[in-house]
C-alpha cells in the first residue's frame, strides 16, 4: 500500500462518480488517482501534493495524531504519519471508537478487526465488488478503499446501525420478504447501498435503482429479489 492519500470523496462510489470521471470539481477521480499513484515512484512530489490537499488542507486528521515529521512536497510542508501505530478516533453508528492503528490500515479492516463490526465483508479488497459498502457522511464508500486515518472526524454508518433494537429496518424487512439473500455474503453491502439510493430519492425509478446498485456484485444471483424489495420500498416510502 502506498503512502499517498486520495482526496476526500474520491473513493465514494455514488452514482455520480462511479464508473466515470468525478463530477466533483474539487476532487481527483479514481481513475486519475490510480494514474497518479501508478506514477508515484517517478513523481513523488505529485503524490505529496495530494497528501497535502487531503490531510492538511481539509483537516481530516485529528490534532492529536502523532506526527513524526514533515517533508517538503511541491513547495508545501506536509506532515508524515506512521509507519507505526497512531491513536485514532472514529464516529461509527453514532458511537465513539478509539484504536491505535498504522496509517496503512483501511477503514474496512479497522471496522472488522478492531471493532468487530463484521457486517461489511472483505471480498475483493480493491474497490470492485461492493461487499464492504458503508456510508461515510451519508455517501456510499467502499470501506476497503478508504484508509481508516482518513475516516476520522466523519460520520460512519455500517449495516449494523440499521436495526432498531430487535426490529429490522424497512429495507432489511423488504429483503427478507423478497428473499433477496441466498448465501448472504454480499447482502450487507447491498442493504447499505439500497439505503443510500433511498436516502437520496425515496421514490427511485428503476434506472435510479440500477445505477445506484451497479457497484455491488452478487454471486448467487439475488438481484431479482433485491429489485423486488426496492420496488416495494419505492411504493411504500413517503416522499
Amino acid at each position: 500500500m502506498g503512502n499517498q492519500y486520495p482526496k476526500r470523496g474520491d473513493l465514494s462510489r455514488d452514482a455520480s462518480s462511479r464508473g466515470g470521471e468525478s463530477e466533483d470539481s474539487s476532487g481527483v477521480s479514481r481513475r486519475e488517482f490510480l494514474k497518479i499513484s501508478g506514477a508515484s515512484a517517478a513523481a513523488p512530489l505529485l503524490a505529496g501534493s495530494l497528501l497535502a490537499g487531503s490531510l492538511a488542507g481539509e483537516s481530516l486528521v485529528s490534532e492529536s495524531l502523532v506526527c513524526g515529521s514533515t517533508i517538503l512536497a511541491a513547495g508545501e510542508v506536509v506532515p508524515v504519519y506512521g509507519p507505526g501505530p497512531l491513536p485514532m478516533e472514529f464516529s461509527i453508528n453514532g458511537k465513539e471508537y478509539k484504536a491505535n492503528l498504522e496509517p496503512r490500515v483501511t477503514l474496512l479492516d479497522a471496522l472488522r478487526d478492531q471493532f468487530d463490526l463484521t457486517g461489511a465483508k472483505r471480498v475483493c479488497d480493491r474497490g470492485e465488488c461492493g461487499a464492504c459498502t458503508v456510508l461515510v457522511d451519508n455517501r456510499t464508500v467502499y470501506a476497503c478503499s478508504l484508509l481508516a486515518i482518513e475516516a476520522q472526524g466523519r460520520q460512519i454508518l455500517t449495516v449494523e446501525s440499521l436495526m432498531q433494537r430487535s426490529a429490522l429496518h424497512p429495507i432489511q424487512q423488504a429483503f427478507v420478504d423478497h428473499d433477496a439473500s441466498q448465501c448472504g455474503f454480499c447482502t450487507p453491502g447491498f442493504v447499505v447501498a439500497c439505503k443510500a439510493v433511498l436516502d437520496k430519492n425515496p421514490k427511485p425509478t428503476v434506472d435510479d435503482i440500477r445505477r445506484g446498485l451497479s457497484g455491488n456484485f452478487c454471486r448467487c444471483g439475488t438481484y431479482h429479489g433485491i429489485q423486488q424489495a426496492m420496488a416495494q420500498l419505492a411504493l411504500t416510502q413517503k416522499t
Binding site: K121, V159, E160, L168, V176, S181, G184, P188
Partner: peptide, 15 residues
C-alpha cells in the same frame, strides 16, 4: 421466508 434472512440482512450472520 428464509429463516436466516434476518441475520444476513443485519450483518449479524457470522461467516
Amino acid at each position: 421466508p428464509r429463516v436466516d434472512s434476518p441475520l444476513k440482512v443485519s450483518g449479524k450472520a457470522k461467516y
